[in-house]
Amino acid sequence: MRDLLRRIILWGGLALLCVLPPLADALGEGFYTVMVSRVLILALGAVSLNLILGYGGMVSFGHAAYLGIGAYVVGILSYHSGEWFGTESAFIAFPAAMLVSALFALVTGAISLRTSGVYFIMITLAFAQMVYFFFVSQQEYGGMDGMQMWARSAAGPLDLSDDASFYYLALVLLLAVLFLKYRLVHSRFGLVLRGIRENERRMKALGFATYRYKLVAFVLSGMVAGLAGAMMANLTEFVSPSLLHWTRSGELMVMVILGGMGSIAGPVLGAFAFLVLEDVLAEITQHWMIVLGPLLILIVLLARRGLYGLLTPEGRSK
């Protein structure tokens, strides 16, 4: 029964997402298209964090760095679009955002993965804060105030300035990443990664180079987060250091835990639940965070495997 409910919710939710833009326009509520686009993008960021947190057991408190780097790469390329040929194109800006984020993740991971526990958490946070203050100091790109993009990236025949087209791009990217993540975590690499999460010493004794596996997962996670940042910059047409702040890392972590760590669709459910709760409570009171905090604690206590765990029978493979 629970398995049937899970299928109905997941497939019904996907069907609703597919028809949301025309449905919102028909109801005269077009702003829902933009709002859900933001949810899909943050869900993409949460999915990237879940790869290392839920499957690798790596508690990174600096994941916002890759989100912000991806956004700033797109913003800077847009800023210089009149000087640098082709930088306004999404086919250049998006891969560049993913590449720079991956390179930073490689450097961060190469250092932080030599530690564990609270030391790992603090090093990832320290790297994120370094990037945050670096962009705060860049006055040419707006400093603390951020910078406005001239326009959304050009994507050939796809008009990203149209909210519906942008929404479907965000949805397709999220689904593609979920599919690739499913294939990855059910491959030999994913099995080793989960083994490392459970008992790294035993995996080393079996002959696996655990450091390399964790580093590859860390880089892949940063790359996907960079893509999410590139999409966020295009959605808002604005880039600021707030995307890099440690509180953003905390929000992504809450989405993963709330939705269900170590599950494919869990972070997506967590992103929707977190942002809907935030939006609803903000309409009721300006001190909505005081209400949201205990509510999230209650949800986590009652659903220890997250929202996705409520829909999945015990012992069932994710």
Rank of each mutant, 00 (worst) to 15 (best):
G70V: 02
F272R: 06
L244C: 02
R188Q: 11
G260T: 12
L103G: 15
G262K: 09
G270I: 06
G270F: 05
Y66E: 01
G75M: 10
G70A: 05
S60D: 09
M98Q: 11
L174H: 03
G86E: 07
I69Q: 05
A265E: 10
L175T: 03
M98N: 04
T236H: 08
V59C: 00
T115A: 14
A110V: 02
F31I: 11
S60K: 02
G270D: 06
P241H: 04
F166L: 10
L277N: 10
G190N: 10
K181Y: 12
F104Q: 08
V34G: 02
T115P: 07
L235W: 06
L307R: 09
F104G: 07
Y79T: 08
S221W: 10
T87Q: 12
Q286D: 09
Y66N: 02
G156I: 06
M98F: 10
H63I: 01
V280N: 01
A102Q: 13
I264Y: 08
A105D: 10
V268Y: 06
V177R: 01
M147L: 14
I9H: 04
Y55T: 07
R202W: 00
L20F: 02
E283T: 08
F120W: 08
L160D: 06
H80V: 14
H245C: 00
L173I: 13
I121S: 15
E83V: 15
V192P: 01
A205L: 09
T87M: 13
L160T: 04
R248V: 15
L227K: 08
R304E: 14
L49R: 11
M255W: 07
V177G: 02
I290D: 00
L301Q: 13
V268E: 01
M253Q: 10
Y119C: 00
M98L: 12
A96L: 14
Q129L: 14
V192G: 02
W84L: 15
A126N: 00
S116P: 06
M98I: 14
A26V: 01
F134G: 07
R304L: 09
L174A: 01
H245S: 10
A93E: 06
G195C: 04
F179A: 13
L14E: 03
T115Q: 13
S161G: 15
L277F: 14
A128K: 02
A233M: 11
I41V: 11
V172D: 00
G266I: 11
R38A: 11
G260Q: 06
E237I: 13
M261H: 02
T247F: 13
L160H: 04
L27V: 08
L269H: 05
D279L: 05
W11H: 15
M289R: 14
W288V: 00
A24S: 12
P95M: 10
Q129I: 05
L173F: 12
W150G: 12
G45N: 06
S161M: 14
R304S: 12
S48V: 11
G250C: 09
R114Y: 02
M261C: 08
T210R: 04
M1L: 14
F274L: 15
L17D: 03
W246L: 05
W150C: 00
L292F: 06
M223F: 13
E314D: 10
A15S: 07
V268P: 02
V118E: 03
E251P: 05
E140F: 04
L4H: 12
